[in-house]
Nucleic acid binder design. Structure first.
Length: 440
RNA sequence: GCGGUGGUAGCUCAACUGGUAGAGCACAGGACUGUGACUCCUGGGGUUGCCGGUUCAAGCCCGGUCCAUCGCCCCA
């Protein structure tokens, strides 16, 4: 019985016309993150399972139920990375980078979580992240946040709000947790099963519950801000002040606790807040999440190095750009139709020469009727169109038609000698770039 | 993991209370031998997601399964 072979659930093929948007986002990230002093790190897709259990946290949903974990042929427990911070930290330690005062890395690639799918959430999804190891200063937090902020602006994302919170230092946590549990404890009996479990397992996560019934209670819960130690409090104040200095707007979100255990002090998320009627991301509103993790390097066996970083969901960024009407398909600058079969060799040679000069030139290898080739030129949205036929071959000149202009426009057609064609096209490419950035 | 909705041609969708599957777009050929999306004709295409059941007969009814989609949980 032959079954139809399809992609594994939650894992998608990415192709044109979306892939051009992916490439645009990735290209912009590589350029911009590089400018900001971050260099790329590529870690393996799989790691020792223990790495994620120890870093992300045993009681988190990611580790307790969402990991792609399997045994390899040597009997080792292997996990496909659900996030890239822990692998980066592992690499940081493994290569002895603790010797350096500052290390800044970015990564870009697929992550894997075994989850129920919905809009903007897939089992193989893509993240772009940036991590800075070394500096404990608030200016490092803010640099990292500012990078995320300006990157989102650069690719044309709108309607995102920066949510900010501080989780304090490790010693602050137990005191706060105790107060939080004491606050919720009298009400647990009235909780839903899910909420009860959250209370038992990870009390802080009750703060960002989506259960309407719990909202009033959560609103009156103790806030972590009142439990911050002096140092953490001063750090948070400085982060806020610096963000203001840089003109980056933010809201304080006391309920922002995030799902990974390793965060300390600053946590932040960029959340998509759609205009009315828009539902591009469904309930998956977070496009970027991050924060400081001052203890993780040490906890994984490395030196005592503070760090801060973020990760963005590429899938969600692309979804947003698509919903904004972004179209980035590549258009040939010129389409050359061939007429007499015996001249095809000349035409192919011309196409090749122009391409080698960096010009996007296309033709129809099938040849055939003029109309078919013209239709082909229209289908691939070529900007200009010429015929390479007997008369052009003899005159060594072309009549170039600008396909973007309506009939009757005085600039519709131009006569260009064969020798001047490349230069003419280079100039045309300058006037109208092959791809246009979103929002233009 | 739990609940709602849905899967028919490459794409968008039709097919009444069960009666041997259709249109538009796209693709290919022609009318038409070289310059704008036109028009007209013709053609290829489908085991109706998959498996099983009920029935004389299943795209339609029943069960399972896979996939998609929305909400919960959670997250990028």
């Amino acid at each position: 019985m032959s079954q139809k072979l399809v992609a594994v659930k939650g894992m998608n093929d990415l192709m044109s016309p979306q892939i051009e948007i992916w490439q645009f986002v990735e290209r912009t990230a590589r350029e911009m993150f590089g400018t900001w002093g971050y260099s790329e790190i590529r870690t393996p897709i799989v790691e020792d399972t223990a790495l994620f259990v120890r870093s992300v946290g045993e009681v988190t949903d990611i580790v307790s139920k969402e990991m792609y974990t399997f045994e390899d042929k040597g009997g080792r427990s292997i996990t496909m990375r659900p996030e890239n911070t822990a692998p980066a930290v592992r690499a940081y330690i493994e290569h002895g980078l603790g010797q350096q005062p500052v290390t800044r890395w970015y990564y870009l690639g697929p992550m894997f979580r075994y989850e129920r799918m919905k809009t903007g959430r897939y089992r193989q999804f893509y993240q772009i992240g940036a991590e800075a190891y070394g500096p404990a200063d608030a200016s490092q937090d803010v640099e990292n946040i500012a990078l995320a902020w300006h990157f989102l602006k650069a690719i044309g994302i709108q309607h995102v709000t920066l949510h900010l919170n501080s989780l304090g230092d490790a010693p602050d946590r137990p005191k706060y947790l105790e107060a939080l549990r004491a606050y919720f404890a009298p009400h647990v009996a009235t909780f839903s099963d899910a909420a009860k479990e959250t209370f038992e397992r990870n009390t802080m996560r009750l703060l960002d519950t989506k259960e309407e019934a719990l909202r009033p209670l959560v609103a009156g819960a103790p806030v972590i801000g009142d439990f911050l130690g002096e140092a953490a409090k001063a750090h948070f104040d400085e982060v806020k002040a610096l963000l203001t200095t840089l003109g980056i707007p933010f809201v304080i979100d006391r309920t922002l606790v995030r799902g990974l255990d390793y965060y300390t002090r600053t946590t932040f998320e960029f959340i998509y807040e759609p205009p009315a009627g828009d539902n591009a991301l469904g309930t998956a509103g977070t496009v970027c999440g991050g924060g400081r993790y001052d203890n993780l390097v040490r906890e994984l066996g490395g030196p005592d190095k503070p760090a801060v970083g973020f990760a963005m969901g590429l899938d969600r960024l692309v979804l947003l750009l698509e919903s904004l009407g972004t179209r980035l398909e590549r258009r040939p600058l010129l389409f050359i139709a061939t007429m007499e079969p015996e001249l095809k060799a000349h035409a192919v040679k011309l196409v090749t020469e122009l391409r080698m000069k960096g010009l996007a030139v296309d033709f129809d290898p099938r040849g055939g009727k003029f109309k078919r080739q013209l239709d082909r030129a229209l289908a691939v949205k070529a900007r200009h169109f010429v015929v390479y036929g007997q008369s052009e071959h003899e005159a060594r000149a072309f009549k170039i038609k600008n396909m973007d202009l309506p009939d009757g426009d005085p600039n519709k057609e131009a006569t260009v000698p064969l020798d001047g064609l490349a230069e003419w096209l280079l100039n045309a490419a300058r006037v109208a770039p092959v791809t246009t950035p979103p929002g233009s």
